Computed example of a mutant assay.
Amino acid sequence: MDWLERIAALRQWARNGSRAPHKPLLLLYALGRFQEDADRGLRYTAVEQDLQRLLAEYGPPHKTTPAYPFHHLTSDGVWEVRTDRGPGSPGSGVRDLRETGATGRLTPDLRAALRREPDLLGRIARLLLDLHFPPSLHGELCEAVGLDLEPAEAERFAAARRRRDPRMRELVLTAYEYRCAFCGYDGRIGTVPVGLEAAHVRWWAFGGPDEIDNGLCLCSLHHKLFDKGVLGVGDDHRILVSQRFVGHSPAAREHVIALAGRPLVGPQPGASPVAAEHRDWHARQVFHGEPRPAAGV
């Protein structure tokens, strides 16, 4: 059995390119718990709050419940649920899962494979991360689910997936003249830029192309906030700041809240600005809540 193919083929609710990382988040959480204690099941009432936090922080902008993946992941052959009544999930209702003592765990075949192949857990985790989340979030997401991964080795299953264009970073940074499109930061050590990254507006994992009109040159801070849905880009190429963001320090006000309504820095004349289709995808699938009014309005 090819577990990587099975993981890559997880059935997910989808409409118009919508993000639905509910099952991947549950699986990453289960892998982290397996690493900690391979024999322990995950009782829904004990892990519900953890899963809810993961969905709130790394899931789509609209509200959802961890009961959905806890029940529906059983259809993919990698997850099983038992209740006080016996094997089988009682359904996707929160009340049903709570009142029946529902407990989930990886299937026996998958647990056996993870014990038999020491590197399989890391390969599955990296596949889930790569297919469903941008690289800027991989490290903190591993920490959030308690996964301890070895440094990534060359993936043997890469042939089945799109390959990234290695020129993307240089093209995007050049288009924006090596300045953060949000704050103008342009730090270097000698001639080498530091803390500047090429951000995909529409995530690569969701069909976003490695092209300048899907990229922004961002400093590390604003790249992370952009991928977390705190920041966005409006139809007029001005910066959006989510009303859900809260920060009272001078640094938070200066580096985030004060950006609301500012025009992007760049790109230089002749370079393609962010395409409307990619801005729209980010606004629907990543940006959280409503944008703040422009500073001073």
Rank of each mutant, 00 (worst) to 15 (best):
G77C: 05
G77Q: 03
V78D: 03
V78C: 13
V78W: 10
V78H: 09
V78M: 13
V78N: 05
W79H: 06
W79F: 07
W79K: 07
W79G: 02
W79M: 08
E80D: 12
E80I: 14
V81P: 01
V81T: 03
R82V: 10
R82G: 08
R82E: 14
R82N: 14
T83I: 06
T83W: 03
D84I: 14
D84T: 15
D84P: 03
R85P: 01
R85W: 14
G86F: 02
G86M: 04
G88K: 13
G88M: 15
G88Y: 13
P90Q: 00
P90R: 01
P90W: 00
P90T: 02
P90G: 00
G91L: 09
G91N: 07
G93H: 04
G93Q: 07
V94K: 11
V94T: 14
R95Q: 13
R95L: 09
D96Q: 13
L97I: 10
R98V: 09
R98K: 15
R98A: 08
R98W: 05
E99A: 13
E99Q: 14
E99L: 14
E99N: 12
E99G: 07
T100Q: 11
G101L: 04
G101E: 08
A102K: 06
G104I: 13
G104D: 13
R105Y: 04
R105V: 07
T107W: 00
T107A: 02
P108F: 09
D109L: 01
D109T: 00
D109N: 00
L110D: 09
L110P: 03
L110N: 04
L110E: 09
L110C: 11
L110W: 06
R111V: 08
A112P: 01
A112G: 11
A113C: 08
L114I: 11
R115F: 00
R116V: 01
R116N: 09
R116D: 10
R116Q: 12
R116L: 04
E117D: 14
E117V: 01
P118A: 15
P118C: 15
D119G: 09
D119P: 02
L120N: 02
L120I: 00
L120Q: 05
L121A: 12
L121Y: 05
L121D: 08
G122C: 00
G122M: 00
G122L: 02
R123Q: 15
R123N: 12
R123M: 13
R123E: 15
R123K: 14
